[in-house]
Design a protein around this nucleic acid. Structure first.
Lengths: 180, 180
DNA sequence: TCTTAAACAGGGGGGCCCTCCGTTTGTCAA
DNA sequence: TTGACAAACGGAGGGCCCCCCTGTTTAAGA
């Protein structure tokens, strides 16, 4: 993977910046043409840099997600189940607040090159360690797999885009169950 | 609301039949143009009968949803919480199995005429009685509102379209919580 | 400076949703 | 039965979208 030419890098950055803004306004379905127009590039340029909508969304959210993942890697605390729940709640709040992210995560990495770091993978990695830690402490039951929890968090976030508070509340409900 | 003319009724039925087939194949985003083409009507006819995609989806699923609601109205059993959980699981399985339904329910009745029976309303009605019953028996905690549960079930279903088994499993997980 | 491959802009094809408007057709009264 | 009328029809067309193809510009290294 050769480094991009200077103009290529410049354009790529502008595209991501504009895309972040428009996805924030219109959600994951933002018009790629408008993104290209506002970034001052042709639509072909956008499609060369990002072969799919999914790839563009990945680029938009990669930094934020990475940051979220770092925060989880902090020192293990007392109650691994509570830690897991807290992080999931934070994840849900974040994805719900960032329009388009939850949908992108739910869709999965549609044919992204394996070389690129992928949001789904990063998050799933973090989640796996948290689940393993909690599980080996006997703090959660076996039915709760990382994949299921990831799906659950994203499903709730995608259903509550623009309402992170509700999303967090419902996730909390889902983690504690309905019984008193 | 005058009854439709004979040709109007015929066309309407054909549209719904074809739409059900194509939504089953392509999901809620099925092409309205193709539906009209296959039904042998002009696109204007389709739009006259169903002013929005939402309205068409409602028509497709109304019968199945009504049936599902009836089944819930059966005699109250021993454990209201289990009843609630069972019905929610059934709902999730059904909506996940019928492509497009979950998405339609999540979107909500977008400007449907109030006269028409609406799937969301039917389901929410059933859910309210189940929750009230369980709640007054002290079998579930107060945080679980009908709206939250509806949203939760639909979110899981929409995230697992075409995989009703996974959808049911994850819903069960969400209703029991992660602790052992 | 010069060469050349990478990156570019814009146009065009194909598809979609939805509305306008002239035409056909079912219905009901005479 | 017939005829008038309102209801329902369907095709064309506007506006938008995504994506690919083409010839042109330009940055980077010799």
């Amino acid at each position: 993977m050769k480094p991009l030419r200077a103009d290529g890098r410049r354009n790529r950055e502008r595209i991501v910046a504009v895309a972040a803004e428009l996805v924030g306004r219109d959600g994951a379905q933002a018009s790629l043409e408008e993104i290209a127009r506002r970034a001052g590039v042709g639509s072909a340029t956008l499609h060369r840099h990002f072969p799919s909508r999914q790839a563009l969304l990945e680029a938009i959210f990669r930094d934020g997600v990475a940051q979220l993942c770092e925060r989880a890697a902090a020192q293990p605390g007392r109650d691994p189940a509570a830690e897991l729940a807290d992080w999931l709640e934070e994840l849900t709040g974040y994805t719900a607040a960032n329009r388009g992210l939850a949908a992108a995560l739910l869709t999965g990495p549609d044919g992204l090159s394996a070389e690129e770091i992928c949001c789904t993978d990063m998050l799933l990695g973090v989640l796996k360690t948290l689940v393993t830690r909690a599980s080996s402490a006997g703090a959660i039951h076996a039915g709760a797999t990382p994949e299921d929890l990831m799906m659950l968090a994203n499903a709730i976030a995608v259903a509550n885009e623009d309402d992170p508070l509700t999303a967090r509340r419902v996730l909390r409900l889902a983690l504690t169950g309905i019984r008193p």
